[in-house]
């Protein structure tokens, strides 16, 4: 996932939604969630899988977007290290256990008290995705081998 590819995907989806004559409210939610999901892939791959002695295929990531009559589903997948699974699962479960009001308070807390990494990540991505979606985050971890686990995330935006 490069910055250029990310820009291209965003342009394609945005122009498709224009053609569908999608309601501005939904268009914005989908676009926002898309940006955060793709930038998660961008930052993570940038990060540390590169260091591993892996097959080139394992640097790949997955991205899908589907639209039914009333629902957009955005799915991403990427490889992570097995030792990252528990903290990520904990974060996702924490977010999934929160009400709308709790998510808003948590977002404000991390926004105000958190620090920004050098890469420009603020630790707000998943909270923001959950707030904009208004649904539980659907995730799965599939162990591949001792060095890699596949992490799948699926987010729904309903009209």
């Amino acid at each position: 996932m490069t910055s250029e590819l990310l820009t291209t995907i965003l342009q394609i989806i945005e122009s498709k939604m224009e053609r569908f004559d999608e309601r501005p409210k939904i268009k914005k939610k989908v676009f926002n969630v898309l940006v955060e999901c793709l930038q998660n892939l961008y930052h993570h791959i940038d990060e540390d899988i590169d260091d591993l002695d892996t097959d080139q295929n394992e640097l790949n990531s997955l991205f899908m977007i589907a639209k039914t009559v009333s629902t957009y589903t955005i799915t991403t997948g990427n490889y992570i290290k097995p030792n990252e699974v528990e903290s990520l699962r904990g974060k996702l479960d924490l977010i999934n256990g929160m009400s709308k009001e709790e998510l808003k308070a948590y977002y404000k807390q991390v926004l105000n008290e958190g620090t920004m990494s050098e890469k420009g990540t603020a630790g707000l991505g998943m909270i923001d995705i959950a707030r904009k979606s208004g649904k539980k985050l659907n995730y799965d971890f599939s162990p591949i081998n001792d060095n890699l686990t596949f992490y799948g995330l699926s987010v729904k935006i309903e009209e």
């Binding site: 914005k28 926004l111 420009g120 603020a122 707000l124 991505g125």
Partner: peptide, 13 residues
């Protein structure tokens, strides 16, 4: 603003 991402939200703060 029309859109901003979470990286920008921290900078805007």
């Amino acid at each position: 603003m029309e859109y901003f991402n979470t990286s920008s939200s921290k900078c805007i703060l």
